[in-house]
């Protein structure tokens, strides 16, 4: 593998997103949402203004879990199928570049754009709030930012995978929406349904492991379990065993969620 070739493709993808102001737009969305949630998140409880980092992060997690997968899927769904459909893929592949280098370059360039928007968008909020936050709170917020980046990477990896499999852009966009529905809305309902139907008698032990099959859930666990106050508040401690809630373990699971779809995409795209 020639890293140089990967870098050239990644560079083009990244600068394309900078130039068309995609990065700026997404960063602004994150900043605005984070600020609104930080200041008005407690409005229902009758308080306005920044309360605590725990509540802010918990609210942000609920938002980000919908938003980031959607943004990542929209960003990546046409990475390969778009080039193929427009007719520019053959020319690219006639260059001294392997299919794997092209795929990896595309992924890394898009991932860099998404990571940059996420870190810039939420980072700006951290700077604004920095005077009101303790070092410990900043540490948690930093963890939230990193896990958001990982969540984006995982869904971007899924998006690139389906862009390799799909025969045209329309199908790819449909699949992207279906993936979003499945992981963000349907998956938890299915688990919950299974628990209810079985009266909680079966599957209770494997339930936490099943949650690891969804990167969105891994993200939720990563953030919520790192906050003592939120954990007790949501009464989740009884559901999820502490030994699975190790941040390093969950991070590994997330990395697997990034690597596996990309690996499958590379296998499929090799032909």
């Amino acid at each position: 593998m020639e890293i140089r070739q990967v870098g050239i493709i990644a560079g083009k993808e990244f600068w394309d997103r900078i130039r068309n102001r995609w990065v700026l737009a997404v960063a602004l969305v994150f900043t605005v949402f984070a600020l609104v949630i930080a200041y008005f998140g407690g409005a229902q409880q009758g308080t306005v203004g920044f309360r605590s980092i725990e509540f802010t992060i918990a609210s942000l997690v609920s938002l980000v879990i919908y938003l980031i997968p959607l943004i990542a899927l929209v960003l990546g769904f046409d990475a390969i199928v778009g080039e193929r459909e427009r007719g520019s893929l053959d020319l690219l592949l006639s260059m001294p570049i392997t299919r794997f280098e092209l795929l990896l370059g595309k992924y890394l360039g898009l991932a860099a754009a998404l990571a940059f928007s996420t870190l810039a968008g939420f980072g700006l909020v951290a700077v604004v709030l920095s005077t009101q936050l303790s070092l410990n709170a900043l540490f948690h917020y930093f963890g939230f930012m990193l896990s958001s980046v990982l969540l984006g990477m995982a869904f971007l990896s899924l998006a690139v995978m389906l862009s390799v499999f799909a025969s045209d852009r329309t199908r790819a966009s449909g699949l992207a929406i279906a993936l979003w529905f499945f992981f963000v809305l349907v998956f938890d309902l299915l688990l919950l349904g299974a628990l209810v139907v079985t009266g909680g008698q079966y599957g209770g032990e494997i339930f936490p492991y099943l949650l690891l099959l969804n990167p969105a859930d891994v993200f939720r666990i990563l953030n919520i379990f790192s906050l003592e106050e939120v954990r007790t508040l949501y009464g989740l401690a009884t559901v999820f065993p502490g030994r699975l809630a190790e941040p390093w373990l969950l991070t590994l699971v997330m990395l697997a969620w990034i690597a596996a779809p990309l690996g499958i995409a590379a296998w499929r795209f090799r032909k």
């Binding site: 427009r86 007719g87 020319l91 001294p96």
Partner: peptide, 15 residues
Amino acid sequence: RAARRRIGYLPENVV
């Protein structure tokens, strides 16, 4: 790969 550096290609209906 090395050979490709010395090959030029103009596809039909280049995009």
